[in-house]
């Protein structure tokens, strides 16, 4: 990571009446990464993002985006960022090409709108009304609108909420494509799978506070180091052999199926070594590693609510 962070947020607080939406939030977003703010609905993700892109004023704290102060320099900033808003809508009877054309007219240095439509796979929907687009096509249009000014930083708020898994994966590829073009992406999601697959770094936010921040792998390693190996074997004294491995914490048997729990990644290697050493034949073998979802559960004590 070289030079200044693209986004610098320090001790930001925002309240609505008596409700504290965001409290003492601090983080940096670096150039060229996909940074994700993850947490359940109502955790303060959107509020945080809207403070950063200048749509809301924080009550306290410091925010710097591309060297600008979002509230004061909002119009200068808008030339350099692209924004996709959560659950955004558009006039029902506006055509794809017209929406892109309008957006292009708003910026000083727009990219070619027709090419953008092609790149986002909307070529055959060019003349379709907004109301006739599918959820995935609408989101692709909103991504196109967010990219029309060739922004350095793109904000994507709950981009794939409500999309089917196929459309979701297509959108993920598009977002990776944005990073490949050297842009920085700041996104929010309540889908842990999305964060794990897409983000270079994530900040977990709950009840307005950032609980931890790091790469998905770091977070999993830090908070959920346990590994599980599940195997099926006919060998009667296999359980005893596995219990002898120092890393193993517990072995439980359910008929021929053994569940071996232990710490750290090399548990799996040691189990395999043990199978080889003792010539234990297995019918089935799989491992379970914790995910961001488990990390979240552990850190907040509650499930992600949809």
């Amino acid at each position: 990571m070289t030079g200044q962070p693209v986004v610098h947020v320090s001790s930001v607080r925002k309240t609505y009446g008596r409700t504290v939406a965001v409290d003492e939030v601090s983080f940096d977003v670096h150039a060229g990464e996909i940074f994700g703010l993850i947490g359940p609905n109502g955790a303060g993700k959107t509020t945080t993002m809207e403070c950063v892109n200048g749509l809301r004023a924080p009550d306290r704290g410091l925010i710097s985006v591309l060297g600008l102060e979002p509230r004061r320099d909002v119009y200068a900033l808008q030339e350099r960022i692209g924004v996709q808003l959560q659950a955004a809508q558009f006039q029902k009877r506006v055509k794809v090409r017209e929406a892109v054309g309008l957006w292009a007219s708003l910026y000083r240095k727009p990219v070619d709108g027709d090419r953008l439509i092609d790149q986002l796979g909307l070529s055959d929907k060019r003349d379709a009304w907004f109301m006739t687009l599918s959820g995935g096509q609408k989101q692709r249009l909103f991504i196109a609108l967010a990219l029309i000014n060739d922004p350095e930083l793109v904000f994507l708020d709950e981009l794939t909420t409500g999309l089917d898994p196929q459309a979701r994966r297509a959108i993920w590829d598009l977002v990776r494509g944005i990073r490949q073009r050297g842009k920085t992406v700041f996104l929010t999601t309540h889908l842990m799978e999305e964060a794990e697959r897409l983000c270079d770094r994530v900040a977990i936010i709950d009840r307005g506070r950032i609980i931890d921040l790091g790469t998905p792998a770091e977070l999993v390693h830090r908070h959920c180091p346990e590994r599980t190996v599940i195997l099926v074997t006919e060998e009667p004294n296999a359980a005893e052999r596995f219990r002898a491995i120092p890393l193993v914490q517990s072995v439980s048997a359910e008929g021929p199926q053994l569940t071996i729990r232990g710490l750290r990644g090399d548990l799996v290697a040691q189990v395999i070594q043990c199978l080889a050493d003792h010539r234990i034949g297995v019918v089935d073998f799989r491992t379970e590693a914790p995910t961001l979802e488990d990390v979240f559960l552990k850190l907040t004590g509650h499930m992600i609510r949809d």
Binding site: L55, Y75, E79, V83, L85, Q89, Q91, L106
Partner: peptide, 16 residues
């Protein structure tokens, strides 16, 4: 209608 549908919000996040 524009406000309820989030259209105003969307337009507001542009140099408009």
């Amino acid at each position: 209608i524009y406000r309820e549908g989030g259209i105003l919000r969307r337009l507001r996040a542009t140099p408009l």
